[in-house]
């Protein structure tokens, strides 16, 4: 049924987001929480290109991913120059600042959101086609990231993360690697944004704020930082768990905050009891004895 397709598509999108976020903060060790903003940039770019400029949807989605990638490079270049930790504040500022801009511009639909986004596949081949599309992209993303992480480049990432100074001493350029990782992760988030936009056909800035960052962080941390399947488990769990909670027959006034409480408590418990997440990263990724570095 329609409803089931919607859920599967959302899960596929969150898998892409969680996996790419894991790549950036887990494998890359980059301290950024602005992943949703690249999701937003991809969604808006794709939607506007398709709706207002008549670009064919599939190209628009790809373009959305590319624009998100370029934006992330700009952010990385400006914030990574000083030190990696600066990326955190820079990323928060970039996320909120970009959302402010979107809210203030007329042609993005402003704070009220962008509607009438052209659809793709659903009208011609039916929603099942879109589901297949989304799931295919999700699977490709996971496999691609896994392939990179387990290959020679992955070893280099690990080395950079473990000891940047030694890494530089060996002649490798940490900056270039960090920017590449960030760009790839953000580009994938942008692709996911385009896929979202052309199915749900309505996007609003409020969907991409700090709460969304927090949700993605939860998926990655609870799922398992630096494992391939961890983010997938995290993404699916985060979609399924709210449903499970509603089976306990609670009055709505209690249900809402309680849902939030259970969720955040879950993250905290995981962070202290099992910081490696549901699916622990394999030994090679654990680096030095530090838990989540």
């Amino acid at each position: 049924m329609e409803y089931f397709y919607t859920v599967v598509i959302l899960m596929a999108l969150y898998v892409i987001l969680a996996a790419s976020f894991n790549f950036v903060i887990g494998y890359g060790g980059l301290v950024s929480i602005a992943h949703p903003v690249f999701y937003a940039i991809g969604a808006y770019a794709s939607a506007l290109l398709a709706r207002d400029m008549g670009v064919p949807v599939i190209l628009a989605i790809l373009a959305g991913g590319l624009i998100a990638l370029l934006a992330s490079v700009a952010l990385a270049l400006s914030s990574l120059r000083v030190s990696g930790d600066y990326l955190l504040i820079g990323s928060i500022g970039f996320q909120l600042g970009t959302l402010e801009v979107i809210k203030n511009l007329h042609w993005t639909g402003g704070a009220g959101g962008l509607s009438n986004i052209p659809s793709f596949l659903t009208q011609t081949l039916g929603p099942q086609a879109y589901v297949a599309f989304a799931v295919a992209v999700a699977m490709c993303t996971v496999l691609l990231l896994r392939w990179i992480a387990h290959g020679p480049y992955g070893r280099a990432m690990s080395a950079m993360r473990d000891d940047e100074l030694a890494f530089a001493a060996l002649g490798r350029n940490a900056m270039v690697m960090k920017i590449t990782i960030f760009a790839l992760g953000s580009g994938l988030a942008g692709l996911a944004g385009g896929i979202y936009a052309h199915y749900f056909r309505f996007i609003a800035p409020g969907q991409f704020d700090l709460l969304q960052s927090s949700a993605l962080l939860t998926m990655v941390v609870v799922g398992g930082l630096r494992s391939t399947w961890g983010p997938i488990v995290g993404a699916i769990a985060l979609e399924a768990l709210p449903q499970a909670i509603t089976f306990i027959n609670l009055p709505p006034s209690v249900l809402g905050p309680l849902q939030g409480i259970l969720f955040t408590s879950l993250v905290l418990i995981f962070m202290f009891v099992r910081p490696q997440g549901l699916i622990a990263a394999s030994a090679r990724w654990r680096g030095r004895q530090e838990e989540a570095r």
Partner: peptide, 8 residues
């Protein structure tokens, strides 16, 4: 429909 969606 267990395991699907976020509605109550």
């Amino acid at each position: 429909l267990a395991g699907a969606g976020a509605v109550g």
